[in-house]
Amino acid sequence: MHAEVHAGTAATTDIGPPPFDGARVRRRELADFLRSRRERIAPERVGLPRGRRRRTPGLRREEVAHLASVGVTWYTWLEQARDIQVSAGVADAIARALLLDGSERSHLFTLAGVTDPAPENGCDGVPPALLEVLRQLEPMPACIQNSRYDLLAYNRTYGHLLCDLDAVPVEDRNCMLLAFTHDEWRRALVDRAETVRVMAANYRAQLAEHLAEPAWKHMLRRLQRESAEFRELWERHEVGRTTSGRIKRFRNARVGLLHLYGNPLWLAPQLGARLVTYVPADEETRERLEKLHAMVAAGG
C-alpha cells in the first residue's frame, strides 16, 4: 500500500514544470512596459485635455492608439500580451507616442522582436568617460565597436582614417558594411581581400550566439542584398575569431600609407563591445598620424 502511494507520488513529480515559453514571457514584459510608460505621461505633455472624469494615471489606451495611428482594439491586445505581430513602423509610432528615450526605445524594439528603422546615434549610448578615453588617445586612431562591427563611437583621427565617417549615415556606420560597399573605405584597405574574408568568418562565428536577434539578421540580409562579394564569401562557411597584434595597412587619402597594430580591448564580453586602438608600427606612420590629426583638428 505504501509502496503504491510512493510510486504514484514519484510519477507525478517526474512530470515537472511546464516548458519555458520565451515568446510568452517577452509579450508579457512588453505589455507591462507599455503600460508603465503610458501611465507616466500627463495628457498635457502630448496636447490632450485632462478632463474631469479621468481615473487612469497618465494616458488612456485609446489615446495612445490615436497618437500612434493604430487601432484601439489592436493596441489593447498588445497591452494584454496577446500573440500579435508588431511591425517596425508600428513600434516606431508607439515609441514616439510614448515619448520614449533612446534606451527605452531600444528596449521596446527588443521586446517586440523587430529591428529599429531609425536607431539613435551610437555615440549617445557610450559613457562620457569612454568618450574622453577616445579623445585622450589622439593622435592614435581609436573607436568603440561591438561584435557586429557597428561603430558606436570614435575619435577624430579614426573618423578620417579610412573615410569621413561623419558624412556616413549613422545606420551605415558598420565596418563590415563599409568594407564591402563604401568605395573610399574599400580603397583604403591595402590588404582588402584578406581583411573582408576574415571579417566575414568572424561575423559567422559571432552570429551563432545571436541567431534570434533582429539586428544581426537585418545586417546579414543587408550584406547579402548589397554585396555579391559578401554572398560568395558567406557561402564558404568559414569561421574565425578576432585576432590582435597583426599589422594592418591603410592607405589614407591625405597622408598616404599607414602601418598600424590593431589592438582590441574587450569592454563587455557578453555584449561584444570593445575599444580598438591603432598604434603606429614605425616612425613614419607615427609622423603621418600626427599630420592627419593636425589637419582634422584644424578643420582641414
Rank of each mutant, 00 (worst) to 15 (best):
R187C: 10
A281H: 15
P119W: 11
I94H: 09
A81V: 10
A188H: 09
A205G: 13
A273H: 11
G240T: 03
G58M: 00
E63C: 12
D21M: 03
G245P: 07
V126C: 14
G256C: 03
V90H: 07
A7S: 14
N263V: 02
Y154H: 10
A212S: 12
E229F: 04
L178C: 07
A298F: 12
L289N: 12
R192W: 13
R173M: 10
E209V: 09
T285V: 06
T157C: 13
M295L: 12
T76Q: 13
Y278N: 02
S69M: 00
P19F: 08
R187D: 13
T56K: 01
A68Q: 02
G16H: 11
P139M: 13
L258G: 05
N252F: 04
V133M: 02
A65Y: 01
Y154G: 04
R231H: 00
N202Q: 11
L130H: 11
T195V: 06
S103L: 05
G113Q: 08
H210K: 07
A23E: 09
D101K: 00
S106A: 15
V90E: 12
R187L: 14
E171G: 00
I41F: 10
E138F: 10
W185I: 00
K217M: 13
V90C: 02
A153D: 11
I15N: 10
G113C: 08
R105L: 09
A142S: 09
V64F: 14
V170G: 04
A88Q: 04
R45P: 00
R222S: 05
P169K: 00
V70W: 01
R249G: 04
V170K: 05
L161F: 10
G47C: 02
P269A: 05
T12K: 07
V64K: 05
L108Y: 05
A65Q: 05
C143Y: 09
S87G: 10
V70K: 08
T277D: 07
H210M: 09
L99Q: 15
S147C: 01
Y149T: 05
D183G: 07
P280H: 03
I15D: 14
R82F: 15
R173T: 01
P19D: 15
I144N: 08
E232R: 12
S103H: 14
W77T: 06
I247P: 03
I247Q: 15
G16D: 12
G113N: 03
T243Y: 01
D150K: 01
A129K: 06
R45S: 10
R186E: 15
T12I: 01
Y158Q: 11
P214M: 01
A118M: 08
A201F: 08
R45M: 13
A7W: 12
T12Y: 07
G159V: 02
F230P: 00
A3H: 15
R288F: 11
R274D: 09
F109M: 04
P49T: 09
W185Y: 10
Q136E: 14
L260Y: 06
E209G: 06
L260C: 08
E171S: 07
